[in-house]
Nucleic acid binder design. Sequence first.
DNA 1: GCGCGACTGTCATATCGCTGTCATATTTTC
DNA 2: GAAAATATGACAGCGATATGACAGTCGCGC
Lengths: 200, 200
Amino acid sequence: MLEADNAQTAHAIALDRKPDLILLDWMMPGTSGIELARRLKREEATAEMPIILLTAKGEEDNKVQGLEAGADDYITKPFSPRELVARLKAVLRRATPPGIEEAVEVEGLRLDPSSHRVTSHGGALEIGPTEYRLLQFFMTHQERAYTRSQLLDQVWGGNVYVEERTVDVHIRRLRKSLGDGHQHLIQTVRGTGYRFSIRE
Amino acid sequence: MLEADNAQTAHAIALDRKPDLILLDWMMPGTSGIELARRLKREEATAEMPIILLTAKGEEDNKVQGLEAGADDYITKPFSPRELVARLKAVLRRATPPGIEEAVEVEGLRLDPSSHRVTSHGGALEIGPTEYRLLQFFMTHQERAYTRSQLLDQVWGGNVYVEERTVDVHIRRLRKSLGDGHQHLIQTVRGTGYRFSIRE
DNA sequence: GCGCGACTGTCATATCGCTGTCATATTTTC
DNA sequence: GAAAATATGACAGCGATATGACAGTCGCGC
């Protein structure tokens, strides 16, 4: 649960933390909610995030504008907690298409997002949160070299200030977790960064 | 590193020298920093330049105004050098989208920039960074002889002082990496330099 | 509210590969 | 055959990456 009381902050947080869903009030200080929605939908990093818009009763115009700006649903104030929850669920359900839930498997190494688990030939692997995300990114973007910068953006999130060398450390932790059986998949590309590859 | 102590000069320099990033103090003589930011963002030539705003502690209003004026990030004084550097990096990272490049293939020899890899009929080849760049240059500039000087400029970069003979050594290393299957592609042009060619 | 363990980011240090240069061998040219 | 150009092998310095350790945070269970 994250909160922001103005559009700037909200924007920054959205980029930074990649929330599953955004609940947006039409009335916000600074940039209007609608403008924020538009912005979020425009940027690739945040375009996929579902947005629910809160509008005051009867403001039909707002609803239309909101939906046009890219909101996925709207709720009219006042609303019951029950209604809110129902809509949240509905939007989340729609927003979590099989794509993200699909497990990936390579040479006996399997990452299953639905159970949030990594297994090697059936046996569970010890793996930290960051390493999990790193591995997930790699397994869904194989055979491609990424710089430390790009990995920071993709795995850590956009507005995060971390030393590039930190990536090295997590790569090492990931390799350690993968063990001898699979660590050859995580390859160093000297002078560039790292790569996940089946070959070689 | 360029400096200006007022908005006019800064504006001029920005236009003139096209810096990668602008660090802007909120407090400036003449036009305020915020006004300058707005101006820079309005003009096409300077709109893409990332701007980081320096604001005094606690002036929340300034931050909001700054971001609305188009600043990409802000730092509150006082700040640590570490933080400054981190933010600079992060902003630059976001501002420099990676170029998209096509793979090149010749007679089963394939160089793929996205995976940063060289393969011979599917099998990965061992190749160092410099040899990789050298090969990339050659494959994108085939059938043409280059002097050692030109290669140094193109592959090593303009302002490097390196012996011309060094090129010979890297040519050799490249040939070695390519192995018997492909080294005939790298040809010596006696008295001139080298050439990448399919023909004899 | 507190203590504990897990996780993160950073640093210092160890390693390893890459680089440029040289001395020497080989090839080409005339 | 001599001179010039290029190829080759060796090497030491340097820079990038790997590793191990550490302190700060955070969430959780008590």
